[in-house]
Nucleic acid binder design. Structure first.
Lengths: 174, 174
DNA sequence: TAGTGCATGTAATGCGTTACATGATTTC
DNA sequence: GAAATCATGTAACGCATTACATGCACTA
């Protein structure tokens, strides 16, 4: 099957435990959202495609009048997931409005440029706070889940220090 | 006017010197591409919108049979640009397939997980190489242009060190 | 009984890339 | 005279978000 952006996120999450579309949306938001977002408009159609391809299997699991469709990964899906994990592509796309502003900050008085740097630092700080809020304290995660979580924390901390360093440097130069 | 993603990139670049659509595409690719890409399919229609809004003014500058339309920023456009520079929004969107892989690497044997980390390190190294290639050696850039360029270099260097550190840690743990 | 959370889904819209079409000029 | 570069533009497509529609179950 033709794999798109969400394919691997959903397949990977289902590789750990069976979930419904709703569960998947929450799992995405709680874990990988800050580097790989996905919306309902992608998730539900993609689940159908994955099921058609035989990579996942769904069964009805409604309780009472409430409908619910629970998906689990198949052996075929697990093979596809492993193949993708071994793939070598490493695309990183960044869309960072704050960097764009900084890039044009020479058009501003020096003080205001420094203000933009401070705003970036503040952006990192807020993201750090958000990330720390994600930690549910429910004990240790598997090593690579933990690794990626650490990456995000470390990245924010690095970003804050970087801004502070540059703020000092620019003030000295002025 | 309704500002979209490319609006500010084009307006900001035209704030420095007049350029054609073709020039703008090259300027984007040479400078801000790694955190804010733009394609012809966005640039040419956006230039028309910007001109209709009075934020830029175009004039024909064809030489001989070759057509060329040169755009410059207007006073109105400059005001709009400054307003945006003062805006407080700091959206950072990341789409990082390598992090997604790492996130699911617990499904692999430990050695292969480490391989993914090494691949990420290699990704940073290649981006660093690409960035260094951008430096045309044509003397010093304005301070904030230089700042953003430094950011990209420093980010890659940090990323490489981070991977090395984590590779050591995971090897120790194993 | 009102609000929140569980649960599924689609339609409209917007953003962005890729691929193509066209043709002039410069450089080797 | 072939290849690279300058130059403009559009059409088709794919990816993603937003907003909406619908309704059940639990809890305060």
């Amino acid at each position: 099957m033709e794999a798109t952006a969400v394919t691997w996120a959903l397949l990977g999450l289902l590789g750990r435990r069976p979930m419904s579309g709703y569960d998947l949306k929450r799992a995405v938001d709680r874990t990988i959202r800050h580097f790989w977002a996905a919306s309902y408009g992608q998730i539900y159609p993609e689940l159908k495609r994955l099921e058609e391809a035989g990579w996942i299997a769904g069964k009805d699991a409604g309780r009472g009048g409430r409908s619910r469709r629970l998906y689990r990964i198949t052996a075929q899906g697990r093979r596809a997931l492993k193949d993708w994990l071994h793939g070598e592509e490493t695309r990183i796309e960044l869309r960072d409005e704050s960097l764009l502003r900084l890039f044009f900050a020479d058009a501003l008085p020096a003080v205001e440029g420094l203000g933009l740097l401070a705003a970036r630092r503040e952006g990192y700080r807020m993201m750090l706070q958000y990330l720390r809020g994600l930690d549910d304290g429910k004990g240790p995660d598997p090593p690579f889940i933990d690794l990626v979580y650490r990456w995000a924390l470390d990245y924010c901390e690095w970003g804050i220090e970087w801004c502070e360093r540059q703020e000092r440097r620019l003030r000295r130069a002025a």
